[in-house]
């Protein structure tokens, strides 16, 4: 059931769709927004559109939690999300403090989403080690 479950298949399809949209819109933004562009309406609008893929990712994760009818698999997924959120808050807060008190390089806010995805992988590993089963990672 685990691999063939329709909700899991839809989740994977949706995250792949989100990833494709993310790559495509980011490529368009990179092509049309020059380096060091001022924060005017056009570049801001294009940059926001380029983030749409990440929104699809978030939506796909939320839909998976709603559509999965297996409570144990849902619990594994919720655990992964909690670990990912903890990892993201911990890493960004820690680096924020490093930035505040030192001249360390700035971490662009853009990296929050990739860090959260890495956190999902960590969450899956934690569940695998403690429960014997892993939840879904970031797609």
């Amino acid at each position: 059931m685990a691999a063939r479950h329709p909700a899991r298949r839809r989740y994977r399809n949706r995250t792949l769709m989100g990833a494709a949209a993310y790559v495509a819109t980011t490529a368009v933004a990179t092509r049309f927004i020059p380096d060091g562009a001022p924060p005017s309406a056009g570049p801001i609008a294009l940059a926001i559109i380029a983030s749409a893929g990440a929104l699809v990712w978030i939506w796909a994760t939320a839909r998976f939690l709603v559509e999965i009818d297996d409570e144990y698999v849902r619990m594994l997924q919720v655990r992964s999300i909690l670990v990912a959120t903890g990892v993201t808050l911990g890493v960004t807060n820690m680096w924020g403090m490093v930035e505040l008190f030192t001249t360390a390089p700035r971490l662009p806010v853009f990296f929050v989403m990739p860090i959260w995805c890495l956190g999902m992988v960590v969450g899956s590993l934690v569940s695998k080690l403690t429960m014997g089963d892993a939840g879904e990672s970031c797609g």
Binding site: E71, Y72, V73, M131, G132, D133
Partner: peptide, 19 residues
Amino acid sequence: LGVSRQSVNAIETGKYDPS
């Protein structure tokens, strides 16, 4: 039961208490 095999395994081994 309409659940996954991993759910049955987790319940049987006491790793997960069902709702």
